[in-house]
Amino acid sequence: MADFIEIFADELYQAEVNRNPIEPLTSRNGSLTVEDAYKIQLKNVERKIKKGWRIKGKKIGITSLAVQRMLNVNQPDFGYLFDTMYVEDGGVIKIDTLIQPRVEGEIAFVMEKDLKGPGVTEADVLRATAFVVPSIEIVDSRIRDWKIKIQDTIADNASSGLFVVGGKKTVVDNLDFRCLGMILERNGDVVVSGAGAASLGNPVKAVAWLANKLSEFGEYLRAGEIVLSGALAQLVVPKRGDFFKVTIQKLGSVSVKFE
């Protein structure tokens, strides 16, 4: 029982380090559960912490109706953000350091207070949030060709890769999160757009879900942590030389370049 968790965790870690994707875990173990998948994820979180990586926050995934239907699930998932994944606003990403990256525009919440579930409401999230910033998440998959089921992506730290956050802080007062529009530009062309409602109907709800979900693992959101609250539009495949800019209504913009 414990064996395959260790083995899969090790495979995923090696795949990440060597940038060499592996076959889906679910194609090799049909009975892999969501609970098993979070155990695999946690194994690698512990391993990375031992290596000196520092947790910067969490990311929420599988938050749109389209992706939930594609994966045939009705729940989101989450993964950990580490300091090693951070890219500065306007920074450059070497595309070769990733396996099969995709670009997303999101709203990032920065926590002012600890937030512990269960029973966390949207109102609790708003009270515990210091401010929000626009962000770009670069997701990546250690599973070959993104052939993921929900268990595969959870085990793979929710397919996290890198993240960029903008430097303009906006307090949550009077923001209608459902309504905030987002445009993602590639080399000056708007390629996808979305609105806050794309993430579980409201990104605040997604953060509440996360706080409650973490409580199942005895975990919680800590003051100062960054929470990427879910993609607001379809994923975009980057190419070498592409310049991406995400602009979110009232929150400002954030950009990154691939080389």
Binding site: L65, R178, C179, L180, G181, M182, I183, V190, V192, S193, G194, A195, G196, A197, A198, G201, L232, A233, T247, I248, Q249, K250
Partner: peptide, 27 residues
């Protein structure tokens, strides 16, 4: 109206099937 960044929510039977922003149309 913010003709570039206003959010658009497209619902079927109360579910947000698609979202976008006005800038999707040529910016």
């Amino acid at each position: 109206v913010d003709l570039r960044l206003s959010g658009v929510i497209f619902e079927r039977n109360g579910l947000p099937e698609k979202t976008g922003a006005l800038g999707a149309v040529l910016g």
